[in-house]
Simulated assay, not measured.
Amino acid sequence: MEYVNLKGARVPVLGLGTWQLSGAQCADVVRAGLDLGYRHIDTAQAYNNEEEVGVALAGSGVARDDIFLTTKVWYERIAPGELQRSVDESLTKLRTDHVDLLLIHWPNAKIPLGDSLKALAEVKAQGKARHIGVSNFTVALLKEAVEVHGVDLACDQVEYHPFLSQRPVLDFLRSHEMFLTAYSPIARGEAATHPTLMRIGEAHGKSAVQVTLRWLLDQANVVAIPKASGEKHLKSNFEIFDFKLTDAERAEIDALTGNRRLINPGWAPAWDAA
């Protein structure tokens, strides 16, 4: 495993995303992932699977301190008081007294950002979150959080894959010693059949998905959390640490980046230009 080491956090660069996993399948996948060597698990209140993740963690036999666990507070619950109550609910479901990273899942223009960040910082001060951050924040929102409100954030979790540039966000995060967590890193499966990625994969005896993950993790301050629905994909996603892309191959993939955004709900902020 490779790691991002920033602000006292040692984050496995490859995590297991659990979005759209539920019930017994979620618990089974998380448990199988831990058995294979995954040590970074990502969930959220809105996924409605924190309880299953907690069951898997408790029964895994892996020491809690060896797991980097992330959850997120839903954007409708980030007001002071409500945010803290929400975190307590998550900790109960996850069967732990802390998470390693706690994120605001989406910004909410109806709730003052400073108030939400203050509540988030209080949770950290209470030891219920070792690190705090945000998700789906633009550069403007990151600037407000860090430069206006002075909150020490660890990361921004955003959609990031070869077809969506996140250069403005990445530049800001790197300049503030923060990391980017890439969700939907294989573009909901689109990367799996892209001709360029498939051709590069053939040269290494790897799949297009493995090439995509390797491209992401070759970038400074980038972590990826692909979802896997079973052991086959868990294993395949994990087998990316035994090869390297050439400079020319990375440049080819870089040239694919554009503005192909797949996650854009009605409550999303005004995104940065590519």
Rank of each mutant, 00 (worst) to 15 (best):
L213P: 05
S175M: 10
E252G: 01
E239T: 11
H131V: 10
G201A: 04
M178T: 05
G230R: 15
K128C: 00
E177S: 14
H131Y: 04
L245E: 12
C155E: 08
R188H: 07
T246F: 06
M198F: 03
V134M: 13
G127I: 00
D247Y: 03
A208F: 02
K244E: 14
D218G: 12
R188I: 01
E249T: 03
A251P: 01
R130E: 07
M198A: 15
K235L: 12
S175R: 05
A224D: 06
E159W: 02
P195D: 05
R188L: 12
S207H: 11
Y183P: 04
F137T: 13
D254Y: 04
K206E: 03
V169F: 04
F238I: 09
N237E: 09
A224V: 14
F243M: 03
T138W: 13
I253H: 01
E231I: 14
M198Y: 01
K143N: 14
H204T: 02
G127R: 00
A220W: 02
A154H: 10
F172P: 01
L153H: 12
T193Q: 14
H194D: 15
S175T: 06
T196A: 10
L213Y: 06
L141H: 10
V211E: 02
A251V: 13
N237T: 14
P168D: 10
H161M: 09
V158I: 15
N237H: 15
D171P: 03
V222R: 08
A187R: 06
H194K: 01
F137M: 12
E249K: 02
L234Q: 09
A220D: 09
M198I: 07
T212N: 09
V223T: 08
V222H: 07
A145N: 14
D152L: 05
R130C: 05
Y183A: 06
R214L: 02
M178R: 06
R188N: 08
D156K: 11
G189K: 07
S207V: 11
L164G: 08
L217A: 03
R250N: 10
A154R: 01
T212L: 07
R214M: 12
C155D: 11
A187W: 11
A187H: 04
Q157K: 06
M198P: 00
A228D: 13
